[in-house]
Write a protein that binds this DNA or RNA. Sequence first.
RNA 1: GGGGUGCUAGCUCAAUGGCAGAGCAGCGGACUUUUAAUCCGUAGGUUCAGGGUUCGAAUCCCUGGCGCCCCA
Length: 569
Amino acid sequence: MAGSSETDWVSRFADEVIAEAERRAPGKAIVCASGLSPSGPIHLGNLREVMTPHLVADEIRRRGYECVHIISWDDYDRFRKVPAGIDPAWAEHIGKPLTSVPAPQGSPYANWAEHFKAPMIAALAEMGIEFHGISQTEQYTSGAYREQILFAMRERERIDAILAQYRTKKPAAGQGGQRQVDEAEAAAIEGSGAATEDDGSAAAGYFPYKPYCSACERDLTTVTSYDDETTELAYTCVCGFSEVVRLSEHNRGKLVWKVDWPMRWKYEGVVFEPSGVDHSSPGSSFVVGGQIVRDVFGGDQPIGPMYAFVGISGMAKMSSSKGGVPTPADALEIMEAPLLRWLYARRKPNQSFKIAFDQEIQRLYDEWDALARKVADGTALPADLAAHARAIGTAAGPLPTTPRPVSYRTLASVVDVSAGDSEQTLRILRDLDPADPIASLDETRPRLDRAAHWVTTQVPLEQRTRVRDEPDAELLESLGDAERESLRLLLDGLDEHWSLDALTTLVYSVPKLQAGLPADAKPTPELKVAQRGFFALLYRLLVGRDTGPRLPTLLLAVGAGRVRKLLGA
RNA sequence: GGGGUGCUAGCUCAAUGGCAGAGCAGCGGACUUUUAAUCCGUAGGUUCAGGGUUCGAAUCCCUGGCGCCCCA
């Protein structure tokens, strides 16, 4: 493709989308879209549904084109299943639109959908993702799709014929009505959506529209007749209710998913919309939708890459405390927005990856910092450079950064040994670089806060440093003369060596002095052994283990008074 | 059973028919190095297997194997 910058996958899609948009409607704003169903926590896998078009839309904007990123909130979808941890009484709401289901107990939000949309919207804002949200509840209940619905009903036979091409299981057993209830139940149990979606088959014929019951609000309805002339539609509900409505004025119901989606492609003029790999089977909504949008609605199918799943590594307490998979908001508590953006930008959509909630996050941050240095000194590879640029900001501007990006690993360690005490944290951080000391913790935020949150919520207790409250009397009692002397040498020098560098010198010199060597003697193998032994003794006395954070750091964090106490002074 | 997708260095991944490459881990060193580093150097390969197309294949086609996902 001529002119393609060929730097990364985002650029290539942007080329493709711009070309396609020019072909379809030159000069008009380019539309990229995401669809999210707020049926439960919107997790990091769902974030890919947003990040993929976001990155492409952002690249398009960077090139000076007008581009709209629509997030379609599928909040008019049926409530399928009561998730674990929710009052089983919510089962009575199964089949209602998500916006008609009460939010979980204790939620400040008006309904189920809002409860799960809100944290996602906040996370998207933090990540610098600009979008135009469209509530499908508002669209349907305001009659925005009136013409499209009436049209789809008129064209129901053609739609049915197209769907029939993909139905692997013909209605061999025959009982359409029975099948429908089975599917409703199966969907209620399964909870996963698109592929098991009721496509609108029923005993009285095929109808691509499903009303929500006017009495019970649920979608356990069956269309029994429809008149194209009058637009009168009759339905019955399992609750016993039945009525006849005019579709030309009725606003409580929706097109079945496989028709709804292509209808909206045409309605919004979507040029780019990705979908999960579960849409990659032959009869999937994306494939079927493509044919329906072309043959029925006379529109075009968007460019739609399939994206692979996003996994999680670690997640110590997450599952137990929050009862589910982590959300973007959870991730943003332990990592800065640019890092999270980077994870999605650096991998092609069809490539699955994991987001680190365990120790891996430290390595990841190291890699990120190393990349930033390469970018700064101009040695970054083009693809890495592109991913970095997409991570740190958008066409609208840069995202907030940490002024002094101290290594995440270091911050985590400091928070660990200082138990989060901000005064001690600042003291240790200030000593990191005496030539250019950190004046305020704010210079290391927000990264410091992310690291602190990670340490307290994700690091297993047995890996945390826990300074002893009381001296290990038994161990102190059992020490030999040489060991006692080493402790005394350390304690004697403590006051005049109370800084990171001086303490480093001190702890290494104690074994030298004991061996009768000057403090600046060159190390010998024997000396190294003695030093290790000395360090282990100190770790045992201070934290009850053989190893720990570097001693100077640890000593500073523990404080002179407590050190004296624990070392038996 | 059907479909999708992936398989490249120890690990995570690049290379979009044209010299198989990075990061991390490893190893050696600078520099006393411990759950805090940084820098320099270094090694690392039958690109899952087999066949085909091609002047040329990690890349395209076919067959098989294994992993993951979806459907039935």
